[in-house]
Simulated assay, not measured.
Amino acid sequence: MSDGRRELILEELGLAPCWVRRELLTADPAAVEPTPVIAAPPPSAAIDAAIDAVIAPTQTPGGRPSRMAQIMPAEKPAEVQSEQPVAVATGPDKRALAIAQLDWPALQAEVAACTACSLCKSRSKTVFGVGKPDADWLVVGEAPGAEEDRQGEPFVGQAGKLLDAMLASVDRSRQENVFILNTLKCRPPQNRNPHPDELALCAPFLHRQIELIKPKVIFAVGRFAVQTLLGREASIASLRGKLHDYRGTPVVVSYHPAYLLRNMPDKYKAWQDLLMANKTLEKHKD
């Protein structure tokens, strides 16, 4: 991505740099307009440390500490939080087992025809997902909104525009190298929170999608997405900044774009999460 395009995207996200180019400086300091103070980006070593604690070895083949181990702080480094996905149901579940055997076209058809919970009565369209089915970056959201319900595609409203801008800032897009889906495939009425039984009945679809996509990193936004993937209830703030694990795949937790539209100061935190996901992907490829 060109520097000019990246600067425009960062400015749109409210993350424009706070420095002034040398050539813009004049002999008269008063001639330079003051620049708003924005927190400086986090040291790359801080993000590298959290990722390398999961992916990079701490010793070389000869037994000597690796370079990353030498620069890591003395305290215990960030570790993968190993959690099990939320149980779909107790006892044998023939429906979940059947879904786990479906290929991609059959899974799409099963989602479109699903009547497992009452959400099928109020939906306009199911929302299966959008993007490249073999993408190495997967975004998992919560539930469709009104516009998603009308179009049958996730993240197409204002929150979707913000998500697209966020992804573009790290050279990602739903058209080229990202797949985007929601935990629930149907919209809850009046955008209410999903009920536990709705999440449980939809979870087999989510798990099968991830198994077929085989992403190298999952970017989970919103507490219901995180709850379903990691099998635990905790605040997004407490889960950010560290890598988690979903069946062997690194998971980076962040705020939902709809939340960011209402809480603009947290956009910078979401930018940090994007950087962590991007660096995780780069190191996973090495």
Rank of each mutant, 00 (worst) to 15 (best):
H195V: 11
V252Q: 03
E33G: 11
D28Q: 12
A200S: 09
W19D: 12
S235I: 01
R247L: 09
R192H: 11
C202E: 15
P144G: 05
R150L: 14
F224W: 08
S2H: 10
R123P: 02
Q272R: 11
P188F: 00
L24D: 14
V80Y: 10
E11K: 12
R208H: 04
P43G: 02
Q81N: 13
T26Q: 10
G63R: 01
L163A: 01
R208M: 05
M264D: 12
Q84L: 14
D197I: 11
L8T: 09
R123A: 06
E110Q: 13
P144F: 02
G129F: 02
H256I: 03
R95N: 08
G160T: 02
G141T: 01
G160V: 01
A200V: 03
E282D: 13
L163R: 00
L184H: 02
A89C: 08
L102N: 06
K216N: 13
L230N: 06
K283D: 06
A277Q: 01
A27P: 02
Y268G: 13
P42C: 12
A39G: 11
A200W: 01
V88N: 07
D245R: 12
T249I: 15
R240S: 13
D103C: 09
M68S: 15
A234R: 13
V130I: 12
F155T: 01
A98N: 09
P77H: 06
Q175R: 14
K285D: 14
Q227D: 08
M72A: 15
K121F: 09
L274N: 02
L230F: 05
R123D: 02
V127K: 01
K285N: 14
P133E: 09
A109H: 06
V140F: 04
K269P: 03
A78F: 11
W271Q: 08
P36T: 07
P265W: 12
D134E: 15
S66I: 05
A234G: 07
P73F: 06
G91W: 02
A78V: 10
D164R: 13
E33N: 11
F155K: 03
F205E: 00
A225M: 03
D3Y: 10
F219E: 01
R67T: 14
T228A: 08
A39N: 10
V170G: 00
A116H: 10
S254Y: 00
L25K: 05
D164N: 12
V111T: 07
